[in-house]
């Protein structure tokens, strides 16, 4: 993961460097162009992330590799599944938020908020259907009163007209 993040930083700064030099211009008519600062900082980030990358690779090499016991595949497979579950778990809120964007567009803010809250407590906190429903009602009321009624945020009206 450490190596991956360092590579992401290097790739992004590489793109910034290329765009700064080729598209926006480093020095234009004897004056610093729009690409001047992006070039400077992308070079800095590239150097620093390259150091971080070298360090991460060295640390990984120095760490003892995990040996798999011969003839005992099943615990490793289940551990792998657990590890992937743990890794993917943080993506659940992101997925809910993305679904929330579309839900607000098509269903309106009231139904969308109710759905987000209900799905969370029902499927992630494992509440009963009735408890999940009772839990999501005050959240919807709060959002409606504060954002729609008080702050008058112009939310799109969904298929239900509210």
């Amino acid at each position: 993961m450490e190596i991956l993040l360092a590579l992401v930083f290097m790739t992004v700064s590489g793109y910034w460097l290329q765009q700064g030099l080729a598209v926006y211009g480093f020095y234009v008519d004897g004056k610093p162009g729009s690409g001047f600062i992006p070039v400077l900082f992308s070079i800095l980030v590239m150097i620093l992330s390259a150091i971080a990358l070298v360090r991460a690779v060295r640390t990984k090499r120095a760490a003892p590799s995990k040996a798999t016991p011969a003839g005992d595949a099943s615990p490793t497979v289940s551990a792998d599944i657990d590890s992937w579950k743990t890794r993917l778990q943080p993506l659940i809120p992101a997925a809910i938020a993305i679904v929330g964007i579309y839900a607000i567009t098509y269903l309106g803010v009231v139904v969308a908020v109710a759905l987000i809250a209900f799905c969370w407590v029902r499927f992630l906190s494992h509440y009963t259907v009735v408890r999940s429903f009772l839990f999501s009602v005050p959240i919807v009321l709060f959002i409606y009163v504060v954002f729609v009624w008080w702050l008058r945020v112009p939310f799109p009206r969904g298929v239900f007209g509210f």
Partner: peptide, 17 residues
Amino acid sequence: SKLMPVVLVLCVIGAYA
């Protein structure tokens, strides 16, 4: 478990508002 859905909803609605 009760707190996080509230924060999530506030993050989504707040960012939009």
